[in-house]
């Protein structure tokens, strides 16, 4: 398990164990877990807590690493909070090879820079895309649907139409 000094906070959410570590020690924490048998990185993602008033968040971006021990089976979720523009965190692609694409996806969708990643480029969006779509301040986009609240003629009063 993760050694005591690295842990910032830990708890259980809906039956899943989680541990928060400092963003600088994410590699150490994951390496310790890997040594303990948590060899599969199930997924890696980010949550944008912009304007989330349900709780107090230490930073805007929360990186989530879900690890699994295939022998037990046992799961643990590791969180790290980061801020900054652009936010930076160390890459774990050499510890867990599946993280390679997951980190590229997280960069593509949230604009998080993974230090020492071999090929940090966009993976889902076109190479010339501007912005990071899954950030909360990025609009959903698409087109205004007729008869919806956003539609212009729907909002225009009859005398001005």
């Amino acid at each position: 398990m993760i050694s005591e000094p690295l842990i910032v906070e830990q708890g259980v959410s809906a039956g899943d164990h989680w541990v928060t570590v400092g963003s600088g020690s994410i590699r150490d924490a994951l390496a310790e877990l890997k040594k303990d048998g948590f060899t599969l990185l199930v997924f890696l993602t980010c949550v944008d807590h912009l304007a989330d008033s349900s709780r107090q968040w230490p930073a805007r971006y929360e990186l989530v690493y879900e690890l699994r021990n295939l022998e037990k089976p046992e799961q643990i979720r590791v969180r790290a909070f980061i801020d900054g523009d652009p936010p930076h965190i160390d890459s774990v692609h050499d510890l867990f090879p599946p993280a390679n694409w997951e980190e590229r996806e997280t960069y593509d969708m949230f604009g998080i820079i993974f230090n020492d990643h071999p090929d940090l480029s966009r993976i889902l969006m076109p190479d010339d895309w501007v912005g990071h779509p899954l950030r909360r301040d990025y609009p959903v986009g698409g087109e205004v649907v007729e008869f919806s609240e956003e539609h212009e003629t729907w909002q225009t009063p009859p005398e001005k139409a």
Partner: peptide
């Protein structure tokens, strides 16, 4: 028309 996906990623 883009169907149920009225968003940035799809051609509408």
């Amino acid at each position: 028309t883009g169907g149920i996906f009225n968003n940035y990623a799809l051609l509408q």
